[in-house]
């Protein structure tokens, strides 16, 4: 397969994941902003932080819902905005058109300019509908890839991109919210933190899943265990690492060749498998999350290197 095509598939999947993540973050922001006694401004700031773009909003100046909706939904200068992600995913798809099924292409092509016609006011007014629309687009795309795409290396590149993006999203969200999971805040925060946790779980569409695994109680250990280490929850860091290892291994099989990215993912999996939530808190949740972000970035770089991306 052409290296450029592999790169396009990898990034197409990443952008589609990112579009969904951003949409979910906006929902989280809205949920948190209406919590009793919530500090609205800071909630919206944490949403922006979770996308890794906090530097766009100078300290000391309040971040409003309007700012965030504009920045995360519509702003073409923001590479993580939903509009940017959908446009870029489509551009990637167009460039790798021959590797996509008709259904995959149609899922990316349909309504690709829809957000062009929205201004901030309208986007805010229709946010729930728009967010549902984005999620449906992404899920249709995923479904089309799942049910129709040949299981050749192209599919593995697609899934690699998707797993990497997902791991980073969960890590970034933990990075932003780690302080509410610190054990001492359990005593202080009470009610508010309970909502904070559930909001994080909602943002990762894991609220129901969490209950199935841990029952009705929320504790920092359990939430950390769920988001970092649970191997059944498809947005946990461990699940994504395992998926990355699986996909990269398949790629190594296709090519009869492995590179630095294969060593790195093996190391990441081994490190994470050796942890439990107690160990994470002993080492520091923040440090563990930071390490994860560093390793996933490095992995992305090494994948590009191994497969001669442009």
């Amino acid at each position: 397969m052409l290296s450029r095509t592999a790169e396009n598939l990898f990034w197409m999947a990443r952008y589609m994941e990112r579009a969904e993540s951003t949409a979910r973050l906006l929902t989280m922001g809205q949920r948190m902003a209406i919590l009793p006694g919530a500090h609205h401004r800071e909630e919206w700031r944490s949403v922006v932080r979770a996308t890794g773009a906090e530097h766009q909003f100078p300290e000391g100046k309040p971040v409003t819902e309007s700012d965030v909706v504009s920045f995360l939904m519509l702003d073409l200068d923001n590479p993580s905005s939903i509009r940017s992600c959908l446009l870029k995913a489509r551009a990637n798809a167009k460039s790798a058109r021959t590797m996509l099924t008709q259904d995959m292409w149609e899922s990316l092509n349909e309504g690709w300019r829809k957000l062009d016609s929205y201004d901030i006011a309208e986007a805010r007014a229709q946010m729930p509908t728009l967010i549902d629309w984005v999620k449906t687009r992404v899920m249709t795309f995923r479904g089309a890839a799942d049910s129709g795409q040949l299981r050749n290396e192209g599919h593995d590149f697609l899934r690699t991109g998707s797993a990497l993006e997902r791991a980073q999203m969960t890590l970034r969200l933990l990075d932003v919210k780690y302080y509410v999971l610190l054990p001492e805040t359990e005593v202080i925060g009470g009610n508010r933190d309970h909502y904070q946790w559930t909001s994080v779980l909602y943002a990762l569409s894991g609220a129901r899943a969490y209950h199935h695994v841990y029952g009705g109680t929320y504790t920092p250990w359990q939430i950390t265990d769920f988001l970092m280490l649970n191997t059944l929850f498809p947005r946990s860091v461990a699940f994504c690492y395992h998926e990355l290892a699986h996909r990269l291994q398949r790629l190594a099989g296709w090519h009869d060749h492995s590179g630095p990215c294969h060593e790195t993912i093996d190391r990441m999996v081994a490190e994470l498998d050796a942890l439990d939530s107690g160990e994470i808190f002993r080492r520091g949740l923040h440090e563990t999350v930071q390490h994860g972000l560093m390793m996933t970035n490095r992995l992305g770089f090494e994948i590009a290197q191994t497969y001669h991306f442009g």
């Binding site: 052409l2 450029r4 592999a6 058109r97 021959t98 442009g310």
Partner: peptide, 30 residues
Amino acid sequence: SFLADLMGVELVEPADLFVDEDRVWMKTTL
């Protein structure tokens, strides 16, 4: 892209190709 797709061949851009030892090569993941 339509023709490449229906023929089942690669659709390449100039940057995917290079010349070496009197042949033209495409850059692939292999």
